[in-house]
Write a protein that binds this DNA or RNA. Structure first.
Lengths: 224, 224
DNA sequence: ATTATCTATAGATCTATAGATAATGC
DNA sequence: ATTATCTATAGATCTATAGATAATGC
């Protein structure tokens, strides 16, 4: 109790002011995220963001130099989030003893989960990248970093692969899966044939396809 | 000569005025297409479009009621184009005697070619669909129509498929290929692993993957 | 006292129109 | 004469700021 009171006190020394400030800042970011993802950044006025956050235009400019700074902040927040979850997901220790198929399954389920979790975050990040060349480059870096880590996990297991060119084949499968995930998670976009099928079926067939193409020695799980 | 003069005369009866008008209209659509695809429709002003087309703002409003009408026209033009090339590509007569793999190969090569042909057209169409819910629905219809035709071709050949659920498997492969095509053709987007590889390698591996997953009787071309 | 927020507004676009000018068509 | 185009501009946003008001912190 004494300890928790102490921590609380420490917090409260500066928290009243700070927490109010941070609360509005987060509210502004949340609102901007949703609106940018929904209508696009250009179509969203600063007044829209302020209203959606229950704040005023002045508050926006107190927290962010200009509209572009708000766009950058939305992007950065998404980037941090993506980076954090990715770091956790590709931790090599986590995958000790796992097969290629295990890693691919983990990638699929992880992506489906995080993708469905906060759809606006990713949408707003993509929108921000579309608006600004610099952010577009940063987005590329983020994905490259993430992809490299995952490819490392896969390449460390290339002995399992019977395809004549294991590196090409693993890159191809990775491309295949990320393209399908992107299509499946893109909210307002085109209608993939499989949209109606459950995630379980999708994951099962995707892994079956990968296993056969890669010619994995272990064969297809659940089948001779 | 007489005949060609006659036709020319017929043309010229109304063509002077009309052709001038149509030329500017096309120039406006071309300019809008490129700018919408590049910067987005919101970020493109009517004055931008006029300037890029070498015309004036007034000319834009002579041809299109408002900016939204211009957006619709850009979309419609893309739709017509897509529909025309698709009709030609999925003509059943064209595919008499072709195998599942032949059809898939045709789809890949056709998509790669048309996709690279006029990148702005598709980009502007997608952008237009993003701006307006009605266009988003029309886009869905267009793709559904196209997909249905192609799925018909594939389903007519389901006897070749060894996968326990041929309909699911064909839908899955189709999804797989269209997702990969989309990623491969999306200009300023993320970096797929395979971007560096040639189209030939991409097509070859994609077909190999499809053949193995579908368990096609004919086996993989060029391999045992 | 200091920091956060709000209200009101100047200045910069951007859309759309009205009226003038130029190019065809008889 | 009729249709296409241009120039100039009114009216509607939208961004960003300045100055006033409200909420914490000592």
């Amino acid at each position: 109790m004494a300890r928790s009171r102490f921590i609380s006190d420490l917090h409260w020394v500066r928290e009243g002011q700070q927490s109010r400030s941070q609360r509005t800042q987060q509210a502004l970011l949340d609102a901007a995220e949703v609106l940018f993802a929904e209508k696009g950044a250009e179509a969203t006025s600063v007044a829209d963001v302020a209203a959606a956050a229950g704040a005023s235009v002045g508050a926006v400019y107190h927290h962010f130099r200009d509209k572009k700074a708000l766009l950058y902040a939305v992007f950065e927040r998404m980037g941090e989030q993506l980076r954090a979850t990715t770091r956790e997901a590709v931790d090599p220790g986590r995958w000790a003893g796992a097969s290629v198929l295990d890693v691919l399954e983990g990638y699929l389920e992880f992506s489906l989960e995080t993708g469905r979790n906060r759809p606006a975050s990713k949408g707003a990040g993509l929108e921000a990248a579309r608006q600004d060349p610099m952010l577009n480059d940063r987005m590329r870096e983020l994905y490259t970093e993430m992809n490299d880590e995952l490819m490392k996990l896969l390449l460390a297991r290339r002995e399992e692969v019977g395809h004549p060119d294991p590196e090409l084949a693993l890159a191809f499968v990775f491309d295949q899966l990320s393209a399908m995930l992107k299509a499946r998670l893109a909210e307002p976009q085109g209608p993939p044939q499989l949209a109606a099928r459950s995630d379980e079926v999708f994951v099962r067939e995707a892994l079956d396809s990968a296993a056969r193409y890669l010619r994995l020695e272990a064969g297809v799980p659940g089948e001779g």
